[in-house]
Structure formats: C-alpha cells, structure tokens
C-alpha cells in the first residue's frame, strides 16, 4: 500500500496545478469573474454525466473554463460564448438550451400546458355560473369539522345515483 500511497493525489495535484496555472493566466475584474461563472454553469462537461464545467475537475473542463475566461476577457457576450462552444462540441454542451429551432418545442410545451390547462379549468369552473348558484355559506358553517361518513350519508339521501349494488361495509374480513 505504501508505495502507491499518494498516487491518486499526485495525479490530481498535477491536474490542479495545470488548472491553477490556466486560471492564473488572465486576471479579471470581479464583474467579469461573476460573468464567467454565470456562463460556465450553463456549459456542460462533455465527458461527465450532467455536470457543468464549473463542477468538474477533469482536464477538458479546465480547458473549457479557461476558454470562457479568455473570451469574457476579450469582451465577448454570453451569447457569443455559447455559440462558440456549440459550434465546437455541439448543442450537447449547452445546459441552457437557446430558445430557437427545435428547442422552441421544449420551451413552448410548458407554456402550452399552462395555457391549455388554464383554459380547461376556466371552462370547467364557468359551468357553475350557468347553473343556479347557491347562497354563499356563512363562515361558521364553512368551518365546521368534517365528517366524511356524514357527508356520504347526506349525499346518499340527496341522490339516488350512488352505488346501490355495493353490499355494504359491514362485511369486513373473515
């Protein structure tokens, strides 16, 4: 065990040293640093499972992070940086899918669900207004403790359409 004791550590230290030298390359203002972070959290490490390059310590992520820094230092916008990475690695690396092309399907679907669902709900609730509206309950009545069995009995007395073929609940288990 002793011989390869710190092997893993050595490999990592090397990776870190490379990363650190890369990070040291271009000094940025705090605003630019924040911008780098904002952009980089939306760029995916191409060889990990669903991790942005800010969370990954492998070489390719370090390299890509350095790229982001250089481009931000050169004054390029987030949009330009995303376009650059998309051209190099494919749309796969964009964790914030741009709202264009087939991605419109992705961004539009929840909105469609919201709109469609809202319309259905509105029509359903509106049906009531055509029916005769009962008087609003007083607050005291509305606050009464609920007894589900009492409610069932009330419904059963009020309507005949309930389940008549039910042999009843007194059967229990043998």
């Amino acid at each position: 065990m002793g011989g390869r004791r710190w092997d893993v550590g050595r490999a990592l230290a090397l990776a870190f040293a490379l990363g650190a030298s890369a990070l040291a390359a271009a000094p940025l203002t705090p605003q630019q640093e924040a911008q780098v972070r904002q952009i980089a959290v939306n760029i995916r490490c191409p060889i990990c499972t669903g991790v942005p390059i800010t969370e990954s310590t492998n070489d390719i992520s370090r390299e890509m992070l350095r790229d982001v820094r250089e481009q931000v230092a050169a004054g390029r916008s987030a949009r330009d940086v995303y376009a650059y990475f998309s051209a190099r690695y494919g749309n796969f690396v964009l964790l914030d899918p741009p709202k264009e092309g087939s991605n419109l399907l992705l961004w539009g679907a929840p909105l469609a669900a919201l709109g469609g669902g809202g319309a259905v709900l509105w029509l359903f609730l509106r049906r009531r207004q055509n029916a005769a509206a009962p008087a609003p309950l007083t607050e005291a009545a509305a606050d009464e403790p609920f007894d589900p069995f009492l409610a069932q009995v009330r419904r059963d007395l009020g309507q005949s359409s309930t389940d008549r073929s039910n042999p009843g609940r007194n059967g229990g288990n043998p």
Partner: peptide, 14 residues
C-alpha cells in the same frame, strides 16, 4: 431519437 445523436441537454436553467 429524431436526429440520431445526442445533441441537446436540458440543465437547471430551463
């Protein structure tokens, strides 16, 4: 399935 390769990711931003 449509394009034959992994060409989209959906991350926390969405």
């Amino acid at each position: 399935a449509v394009q034959g390769r992994r060409d989209a990711s959906v991350g926390p931003a969405f």
